[in-house]
Amino acid sequence: MTRRLFVVSVAAALCLLTACSPKYNWRDYASPDAPYRVMFPAKPSTFTRNIDLDGMQVAMTMTAAEVDGATFAVGAAEAPDTARAQAALEAMQVALVRNIGATVTSSKATASEDRATRDVDATGTRQGVPMRLAGHFESRGKRFYQVIVLGKTQALPAEQVEQFLTSFKLP
């Protein structure tokens, strides 16, 4: 009887610990490949692949984490020059918005001689499921970045999206 009580107690304790684990386990991430820092809501994975941005071939390194089907990702690459890095921002935004058949609901862009930013919020559908894209695109010199959250609309709590996007920092 004592052994049975012990097993039940341990099982109950494990259930409580599991129930208390946070869905979002925020962690600081510093890229070893590009000069940025960001907070990811789960342990991220990284991969590099070649992409075509309006005729410019670049190797983009993507670091991403997923929570409840929502993807939190940062992509980083380098263009041959500053002008092409700035042009890449729009190309990335257009491709991502097109990917979910979205309509841009808000956008803002700024540019200077060696820096440009674009912020976008878009809604669309993928396979009949309502989707949302929230993104920040930035270039500094020849380097450019995409910081995005993409997922089912109901799986993207505003405070989590905001935390991720505003945590992205360049030196």
Rank of each mutant, 00 (worst) to 15 (best):
T117K: 06
E66S: 14
G55S: 06
A79K: 04
S45I: 13
R126M: 09
M131V: 02
Q146V: 10
A111F: 04
S139Y: 00
K169T: 08
N25M: 11
P44K: 11
L96M: 12
F137K: 09
L89Y: 06
H136W: 07
F47C: 07
C20W: 03
M60Y: 07
I100V: 04
A85L: 04
D28Y: 13
F72Y: 15
F6L: 11
A79Y: 05
A42Y: 04
A83S: 07
D81L: 08
K108T: 05
L16Q: 06
Y24I: 05
L5V: 08
R115Q: 06
R126N: 06
R143E: 10
G135F: 06
Q154C: 13
R132Y: 00
A65V: 06
A34H: 12
G55T: 05
A91Q: 07
K108L: 10
Q93W: 07
D119K: 06
V38L: 11
L170F: 00
G101E: 03
E113F: 10
R4D: 14
T71D: 15
E113I: 07
M39V: 09
T123D: 02
L165Q: 08
T103C: 01
G75V: 03
D121L: 11
V147Y: 06
G128D: 01
S107L: 03
D28T: 15
R118W: 02
V161A: 09
G124T: 00
A64K: 03
R37M: 15
W26G: 10
T71E: 15
I51D: 09
Q160Y: 02
A34G: 07
R84F: 10
A83F: 07
A65D: 00
A77W: 03
E66W: 09
Q154F: 14
G135C: 06
P41F: 06
S31C: 10
D119L: 02
A13N: 03
L16I: 12
T61K: 13
T117F: 01
F40Y: 15
V149M: 08
V120C: 01
T18R: 10
A88F: 09
A73K: 07
H136C: 02
W26T: 08
F164C: 11
G151N: 01
T46R: 06
R37C: 15
E90G: 15
T71H: 10
K152V: 14
V129L: 05
S21F: 03
Y24D: 04
P80D: 02
A13F: 10
S107A: 04
E138P: 06
D33Q: 13
R118Y: 08
S45Q: 08
V58I: 15
L53M: 11
G55Y: 09
V74F: 11
Y24A: 09
L17Y: 07
C15Y: 13
A13R: 01
F144N: 01
L16G: 12
R27M: 10
L53R: 13
P171W: 02
A77Y: 01
E159Q: 14
V129Y: 02
M92A: 14
A13P: 02
Y145R: 05
A79W: 01
E138I: 11
A34S: 14
E138V: 14
S21D: 07
G128C: 01
T123P: 00
T103P: 01
N25H: 11
G141D: 01
K43R: 13
V74I: 13
N50M: 12
G135Q: 03
F144C: 03
V97C: 08
M56A: 10
K43P: 07
N99T: 05
Q127F: 04
K152I: 14
G128A: 05
Q57S: 15
L14S: 09
S167A: 03
M62V: 11
P41C: 13
